[in-house]
């Protein structure tokens, strides 16, 4: 084979593997849509979006996705309440305050937090955090949104801190020095100059953390319960979209049945949420890159 032909073949092989990622996306969309489509032949979209009960596995079947969405958003909100202040403080501290050596030690340790399998976090939530919360809030249930949300928050701290820190550090040094040069303190420099300058990067980190929390599965499947209910009470069992999919997967639901299709309708709802968030993040990041190029 001549060198020229070899080059062409190699490029073709590389291109083929590139198309696998496109096929994956098509696969996901196709799988979710086709199964959801046949789901919506039997259940009206209006019921799906407006009914306030989700009981596909009971004798009296109701198909309102709202309770699952509320459960998902509740745990996510708790997680962000924990992770946002902590993650941002860590990011600002590491990029503006901490001595270099401390940063070099702490950063990989924080990344380790992100590498812990989520099933382990689930164990933390159920076996350690919930019993601890019970000593403060005696009427909290064994499964609840609070404990799962808090642990999920701890899990996503490194996402926010690491990405926000990168954003802060990519701000040109001259900007920081200009602020110091007119006598600003580190705190003033951080919040009045650096954070605004890095705002798009920080926003991206928050959106991605949000998206990550919505899609998180094992922590909520283990610690938040399996009772879909439309509530903002963090002390009682709820169910998230992801936990529902796990619940059905563990059972013996025959392929083609309406119950089987519910997990695709639920998955599709989840996918739409994360897809929108990820695209906003992508778009913001793109704008951000253009600003500094």
């Amino acid at each position: 084979m001549t060198q020229k032909n070899k080059e062409v073949c190699i490029e073709l092989v590389l291109k083929l593997s590139g198309t696998i990622t496109v096929l994956t996306t098509f696969g996901i969309i196709w799988v979710l849509f086709s199964e959801s489509f046949s789901f919506f032949k039997e259940v009206s979209i209006v019921e799906f979006l407006t009914d306030n009960q989700w009981t596909p596995l009971f004798a009296n079947k109701r198909f309102g996705i709202m309770p699952l969405i509320s459960g998902t958003l509740l745990t996510t909100a708790i997680a962000l309440t924990v992770a946002l202040p902590l993650g941002l403080s860590i990011a600002i501290y590491l990029s503006e305050y901490a001595p270099k050596r401390l940063r070099l030690i702490v950063k990989p340790l924080l990344e380790m937090l992100a590498s812990i399998p989520t099933v382990v976090y689930g164990f933390f939530a159920l076996m350690i955090v919930t019993p601890f919360l019970k000593t403060i809030l005696p009427n909290i249930s064994g499964f609840n949104a609070l404990s799962a949300g808090i642990v999920m928050g701890i899990m996503i701290i490194p996402f926010i801190s690491s990405m926000s820190e990168d954003a802060l550090r990519s701000v040109p040094k001259s900007i920081r020095e200009a602020s110091y040069g007119i006598g600003a303190t580190r705190l003033q420099t951080s919040f009045r100059v650096m954070v605004p300058a890095a705002s798009s990067g920080i926003i991206v980190s928050v959106i991605l953390a949000f998206s990550r929390a919505i899609g998180e599965t094992m922590i909520v499947a283990i610690a938040a319960g399996q009772q879909p209910r439309l509530t903002l009470n963090p002390l009682v069992p709820i169910e998230t979209i992801t936990a529902y999919i796990v619940q059905v997967s563990l059972g013996d639901v025959p392929h083609g049945s309406l119950e089987y299709k519910t997990i695709f309708a639920a998955g599709m709802t989840l996918f739409v949420f994360t897809f929108i968030l990820n695209n906003i993040a992508f778009w913001v990041r793109k704008k951000f890159r253009e600003e500094y190029e």
């Binding site: 996901i28 919505i214 999919i245 998955g267």
Partner: peptide
């Protein structure tokens, strides 16, 4: 590029459905 970045953000459980 958008595609790869999107795939990175798809929740793992969706890959399970796939």
């Amino acid at each position: 590029e958008i595609n790869v970045s999107n795939l990175a953000g798809v929740p793992s459980i969706i890959y399970g459905l796939l």
